Amino acid sequence: MIEKTVNIIELPQLALAFIPVLAVIFIQFSWSLPQKRTLHALARMLVQLLLVGFFLSYIFESNSAWLVLVLLIIMVLFSSWIALNNIEAPKRQLFQRAVLAISLSSIITLFIITQGVLQLSPWYHAQTLIPLAGMVFASSMNSISLSGERYYSELANKVNYKQARNIAFQASMIPNVNALLAVGIVSLPGMMTGQILSGVSPFIAARYQIMVMCMIFASAGISSAYFLLLAKPNSDDDLK
C-alpha cells in the first residue's frame, strides 16, 4: 500500500491561489462596486490565519485544558459579535443573546460529538476539539446572522412574532439544507477532502464527514432557534 503524505505548500505556490481572488476584485472595480470591505476581509484573513497557525502550534504542544477553554471562550465572543454585523437592532442586547445561543448549541453538540461519537480523551484534546469547535461556532454564527437579519426585517414590516420567527428560522437553515443535499454529489466538504488528500480511506473519511454534517446542521438549528426565542418581544400584541 502506498503511503501518502500531505504536500507542503511553499509561499510562491500559495501566492498563485490569489490569482482568481484578484479576478473577483477586478470585477468589483470594473463594475464600480466597493472593494474596501473585500480588501479588509482578505487582509484580516491572512493575518488571522498566520497568527492562529502559530498560536495553535503552541496550544497543541501544551495541550492545557485552561488554554483550550480560554480559546473557546474567545471564539464564542468573536463569532457572536461577527454574527450581528448585518442585523439592524441594538447590539448590546443582541450580543448577549448571540453568546447564549452559540454557547448552548456548542455545549450540546460538542459534548455529543466528542464524548459520544469520538469518545475523546482527555475531553480537552486541543488538536481535535478546537477544529470541531470552530466548525460549530462558524455554523452557529452564520445561522444567527441570517435568522436575525430576516427576523428584524419581518418585524419592521409589521409581521407578528410567531410568523417572523418561523420565516427567519427557515431562511437561516437554507444553506445547511442545501449543503446536505449537495454533499457527495456536488461537493466534497473540507474535512473529507483533507482526509482523502492525506491518504485516509474514502470510506472512513465519509463517516467523519457524516458526523461533521450532522454537527453543523444541529448547531445551526439549535443556535438559530434559541436566538429567536430570546428575541421574543415582551408586548402581548406582538405575540398574536
Rank of each mutant, 00 (worst) to 15 (best):
V183I: 14
S57R: 12
A65L: 12
S219V: 10
V24H: 01
I196A: 13
N157V: 10
P189D: 05
V117A: 08
I144H: 01
S219L: 02
V76F: 03
F203D: 15
F78S: 13
F26V: 01
V136W: 01
L197N: 13
F26T: 00
Q93R: 15
N85C: 05
F217T: 06
S79A: 11
L69M: 15
L22G: 00
M191V: 11
A231D: 10
I185C: 10
M213C: 05
I204D: 13
T193L: 07
A179Q: 00
S147H: 01
V47Q: 03
I74N: 10
L69E: 09
A83G: 00
G221V: 06
A218R: 02
L72K: 03
L230Y: 07
I167T: 12
R97K: 15
Y124C: 06
S147A: 11
I108L: 09
Q209D: 11
A89S: 11
V200W: 07
S103M: 13
E149I: 08
I102R: 00
P233E: 05
A17N: 09
S153C: 07
P202N: 10
L120V: 04
V6A: 12
M192S: 10
E149P: 03
W123F: 12
A206K: 14
Q163E: 15
M213Q: 10
A126K: 01
V70A: 15
S121P: 00
P34D: 06
A101Y: 05
M213G: 08
L51S: 01
Y161K: 06
S198F: 11
R92Q: 14
A220F: 05
S145W: 00
S57Y: 04
A17P: 07
A205Y: 05
I130A: 00
L46P: 02
K158A: 15
L42Q: 08
Q13R: 09
G184P: 10
Y124Q: 07
L104P: 04
S223E: 00
S139I: 00
D238N: 12
L49F: 01
I102F: 02
F60L: 10
M192R: 07
I185A: 14
K232Y: 08
I204H: 07
A171G: 06
K4Q: 12
L22M: 14
S224F: 12
H40C: 14
A101V: 03
A231Q: 08
L71N: 03
M192F: 06
M135Y: 06
V212C: 05
F217H: 03
Q93W: 15
L22S: 08
Y124E: 05
P175L: 00
Q115N: 02
I210R: 14
Y208C: 06
E61V: 09
A220T: 03
V117H: 10
Q115M: 07
Q209V: 06
T128Y: 06
F137A: 05
I8V: 13
H40L: 15
A205Q: 05
N142P: 01
S106N: 02
N85P: 04
E10C: 04
P20D: 08
V76E: 03
D238Q: 13
S121D: 11
G184T: 02
F78D: 14
A133Y: 04
A43T: 13
L50G: 15
Y58P: 08
L51W: 03
E10N: 09
A205S: 14
S201D: 15
L110V: 10
L100Q: 07
